[in-house]
Design a protein around this nucleic acid. Structure first.
Lengths: 197, 197
DNA sequence: ACGCGAGTTGCAGTCCGTGCAAAGTTGCAC
DNA sequence: GTGCAACTTTGCACGGACTGCAACTCGCGT
């Protein structure tokens, strides 16, 4: 399941994962602020400088942040108006696809998630990361809505941000158990109830 | 309109505002990243160390971030179940009260806002700041909902975050013109339309 | 085998942010 | 107003994040 990529690419991914894992190990032991980038690099056997070729910051290494996969199948489906044709529901699908299939792998994702529970700064950082990529979501939404959108793309994109974040927080609140999709469904349900008054 | 506070408190506020203003002046001229804290302090005639007695970071100085006014009248009204009794509408009022009456003054708020338009990092920072204070919003919501909430407090709080942020972004998108309340109303309207399908 | 280009590394340097203790201010009681 | 207690400012020293640069290594196509 893996070898159509060159050695270069494979090494790169291995290194990134090694860095994330090293970060997780150390942070779980000592806490986010007590761990220096230098320590992480020692653990992963990489130079400090290299670390910053992979991640913009220490926090990003914990979260495993990676350039956004713009061209995901779920993204194009959404842009094309699917899968159901109802904007909110499809938004739910889009968000759900990221929750189900994180670009960095399930276990790493869960560990990152667990750490973020204990280090509120990371929650904020995650939010900021999402915000930085909002432009791409806006593009997706614009593509879907066409030339004369009757909905405001930036508001829809912000709503996506809300869904994602609220899902995370609710997930965390319930002890990290269960599937992401269920928590997402809960959030959407709450939203509907709230708006319905 | 001002003198029931001691000299100490007045000086403190003056300094804070001086620092914010100095920051705004320099950042508007040279851009956020080109301005060092040292330069700001030189401009405001204060030691570097003092700067960090007032703000946690350079970004916070631009945004004029200040400890959250938990005990605002709007907050207590909301907690008590007012003003209308409809959760979403009252949330709108709560958010609106912050937009209308920023703790740092209208002009400074507008300038901060204008700068944030050009420096996306600040938008993210603002979001993060809000997130850090979510605990207090959750408390407000819990107080309002009582012991057996049929709505999830954290989801409601996240929604408040969404409303605020979306309003900002939409405001920015329309060139910073108009009243905050109008943009907020727009966002709420969009949300209702979106959920209604 | 060989050269190109991507990736890595060390190094020097900038800036952010903090702890501490000394020095300066303000508030208050008398 | 004097003196003391509480608070603020400041300088200093320091740790650590992050960047630019230039040399180097090494996979990859030919």
């Amino acid at each position: 399941m893996s070898d159509d990529l060159g050695l270069r690419e494979r090494k790169k991914r291995a290194r990134r994962e090694a860095l994330i894992d090293a970060t997780h190990r150390l942070v779980e032991q000592h806490g986010l602020d007590a761990v220096t980038v230098e320590a992480i690099c020692a653990e992963a056997d990489v130079s400090t400088r290299t670390f910053f070729n992979y991640f913009e910051s220490k926090d990003d290494a914990v979260l495993g942040h990676v350039p956004w996969p713009v061209d995901s199948p779920a993204g194009t489906t959404f842009a094309a108006g699917g899968p159901t044709g109802h904007l909110l529901t499809d938004l739910q699908h889009l968000v759900g696809s990221f929750l189900d299939d994180p670009p960095v792998g399930r276990e790493r994702f869960n560990r990152a998630f667990e750490i973020a529970t204990r280090e509120p700064r990371l929650l904020a950082r995650h939010l900021a990361w999402f915000e930085q990529h909002k432009g791409q979501i806006v593009a997706l939404v614009e593509q879907r809505l066409g030339e004369q959108p009757e909905r405001s793309p930036v508001v829809v994109a912000s709503l996506a941000l809300f869904l994602t974040h609220a899902t995370f927080v609710h997930w965390e609140e319930s002890g990290g158990s269960g599937e992401g999709d269920d928590h997402l469904a809960f959030v959407v349900h709450e939203l509907r109830a709230l708006v319905a008054d």
